Amino acid sequence: MKQYLFVVILTATITLVLAWAVWQLSMRYKLYPGIRERDVHKTPTPRLGGVAMYLGIVAAFLASSQHPFFSIFWADPAAVWAILGATTLIVLVGVADDIWDLDWMIKLGAQFAAAGIIAWFGKLQILSLPIGGLTVGSSWMSFVLTVLSIVIVMNAVNFIDGLDGLVAGVALIANGVFFAYSYLLVRDAGATTYFNLASFIAAALIGACIGFLPLNWTPAKLFMGDSGALMLGLLMAVSAIAITGQITPSQLDPDNFGRSQLLGAFIPILLPITIVLLPLLDFGLAIIRRVGAGKSPFSPDRKHLHHRMLDMGHSDRTAVLIFYAWTAIIGLAMLLMYIGTASDWPGEYLLGVGFGVIGAIACLVVTLMPPGPRPAPVTTAQEAS
């Protein structure tokens, strides 16, 4: 665990220093776009914070190559280099979009290319679903399912990037939960070491978000832009595939694993989904809304979930905190349920169910009962996707 803590601290420190440098350079050379009609913020703000997060994560990967505890995923480095290559591609395209506002077809093509690099060259594919011994039928089905999953999560995370600190905080909470899950899942699967690529990626993402939040918290001095949001989505999807999609169903067989036959068999596939449930929900609603209106599914608008919360009367900061609460409650509830089913101890399982139900009710009340009309905006807020 000390090694993972080192990854978090290293990534956070480098990201913070570089984010400050990017902000200073962007302000000096006016590297920021004008205000768009759909934007919430009122002051031109640099959007290149994703570059600092990317460099912090790359530094963590390079440091891990010199650390014997992480040699397990450097023994066959193809997957690591594919991840770094795909991440570099998506960051470059994101930076170009943040500066020149690229056509959505170009961005989507780059997303499919990045996902393809990981699935084809990195050999990181969804080979099985730990649900009753279900395996993917063919290599091509694995490839297609993997690519689609990565692209969907990338866009889902990018779509909620609309308020100060929203994506960075949601990703921080989600990856914290996923780190605990992946660490415990490897242990419960009988691995000889707890060091694995999925937990490492989650730790690096935690560090990047911690390092970036001080400059992104309201009023934000720096936005992560598409380069940061797409990168977060890419790596979150990859970390889930690197562990859940690679474990064979026999390793998690209820007779050997001691889990509940009912919901326990579904938790290893449900938990990676639930930690990005809000972004996926916003993404799905946006696609339905735009296609139903005869528009491109990637045409921007001002009807995302965070926009609706602002229109209901929530302040920018309150809306962000509510998103944090929803993410934490859903993720922690599933994690507690997993711990309970994995240890065959119903206490944690029932605690997870109760925590999720009570927490969801509380969040629903707070979400639907804003304090009053929204005051005139006085702080900088993140751009809408």
Rank of each mutant, 00 (worst) to 15 (best):
S139M: 10
L222Y: 03
H307W: 05
W217F: 15
Q382H: 14
A265M: 14
G356C: 06
H304S: 10
G165R: 00
A119T: 02
V17K: 06
L368R: 08
A325V: 02
D344M: 05
A328E: 07
I275E: 03
P130H: 05
N175G: 08
I287F: 06
L166C: 06
W217K: 11
D316Q: 15
A381L: 03
G352I: 09
P300T: 12
F355E: 01
S227N: 13
N256W: 11
L163W: 00
H67R: 11
I14Q: 08
L108W: 00
A376T: 15
L148E: 07
V144C: 07
F257H: 09
A189K: 02
Q24S: 11
M224A: 11
T87D: 13
L166E: 01
A75K: 13
T248Y: 12
D39W: 00
G258I: 01
A63E: 02
W74V: 13
W217P: 03
G109Q: 07
G340F: 07
G162S: 09
G354Q: 05
V51G: 10
P219I: 04
I267N: 06
V177P: 07
T379P: 02
W345F: 13
V40C: 07
F298V: 06
C363R: 05
V58L: 15
A60N: 02
I83N: 10
I269P: 03
V378H: 08
L166W: 00
G162W: 01
H314E: 10
F112A: 13
V157N: 07
I152L: 12
I339P: 00
N155P: 07
L89Y: 08
Q125T: 15
I358P: 07
L92M: 13
G294P: 01
A376N: 14
F61G: 04
V366Q: 11
F257G: 02
T193C: 03
L350F: 14
S128Y: 03
S26Y: 13
I243A: 10
F178V: 04
G359F: 09
V157T: 09
T88I: 11
V40W: 01
L270H: 02
Q3T: 13
